[in-house]
């Protein structure tokens, strides 16, 4: 049934560190590569090498410009995939029973054999995490690499989602978010991890770690008072006119006497 489980044994999910992500798209490419060769139908593309390429992806990396009130704009790379919500609206709307949330670990999956491809689950998801396969006509979504994480045929270090394994900066973490003593839960607590669109009431399992503010205008940093902070000054060689230190003091002192 497409009713949601009251509780799940574990809450497996991802934690994405927006402070560390460099927007290289390796997670998205690795996800596409793993899942197109997985147990379900391939993740199809249409017109892949033509003028209007399009296809199903389970992970997409957006880039945002954030403009603080005072300070320079900051670029934030933002990978987005299924958040495996506790109160997943995509599951309850499914008329065929193809969508379900696993009781044992909370992973939200689609049974491609029973999906009729109506697309209502994609409409119900506020995050745009589900995409219809253009060739197979079934709904595709992140499986949290359920065919990797429990796969005894893989070396232990590979038993994590493909995106986590691929990330070159360690911006993606995988673990049990239902266990407060897990490393990943501690990381969320320490860094102030947050939900996306909490107002939608979906209770997402995946968490995002906020980026730290990187630059600020010098006046915000303190120490330079009212003078505008000029980066070029740092690179400028000392001349007689702008010398600092002892020579500068001497220069100013002689000027006063003279």
């Amino acid at each position: 049934m497409t009713t949601l489980p009251e509780t799940t044994g574990r809450k497996l999910g991802l934690v994405i560190d927006l402070d560390t992500c460099v927007g290289c798209h390796a997670c998205a490419v690795s996800c596409k590569e793993w899942n197109t060769g997985g147990t379900g139908a391939p993740l199809a593309d249409t017109d892949a090498y033509g003028a209007d390429p399009s296809g199903a992806w389970l992970n997409r990396v957006h880039t945002y410009e954030v403009q603080p009130q005072n300070g320079p704009a900051q670029m934030v790379h933002f990978p987005k995939s299924c958040l495996h919500c506790e109160d997943a609206p995509c599951v309850t709307v499914c008329p065929t029973g193809a969508s379900y949330k696993r009781v044992e670990d909370g992973i939200v999956l689609v049974n491609e054999d029973t999906c009729m491809g109506c697309g209502l689950c994609a409409w119900a998801c506020p995050y745009g995490a589900r995409e219809m396969d253009p060739v197979a006509g079934v709904m595709k979504k992140c499986t949290l690499c359920v065919d990797r994480i429990y796969n005894q045929n893989l070396p232990e270090e590979d038993r994590v989602p493909a995106c986590v394994r691929a990330c070159p900066t360690g911006a993606r973490h995988f673990g049990d978010l239902g266990d407060p003593s897990s490393d990943i839960s501690k990381l969320v607590a320490e860094r102030g991890g947050y939900d996306l669109m909490p107002e939608q009431g979906t209770k997402p399992v995946n968490q995002y770690l906020p980026p730290r503010q990187r630059d600020a205008w010098a006046s915000e940093l303190g120490g330079c008072d009212s003078a505008p902070f000029n980066l070029a000054d740092l690179a400028e060689p000392e001349t007689a006119d702008n010398a600092g230190g002892f020579l500068g003091w001497l220069d100013k002192a002689l000027e006063r006497i003279g």
Binding site: H62, T63, Y64, E65, Q67, P210, P211
Partner: peptide
């Protein structure tokens, strides 16, 4: 995006 605490957000 949850980035509102930093400032105004625009898809770049």
């Amino acid at each position: 995006t949850g980035l509102g605490f930093m400032g105004r957000v625009r898809s770049f």
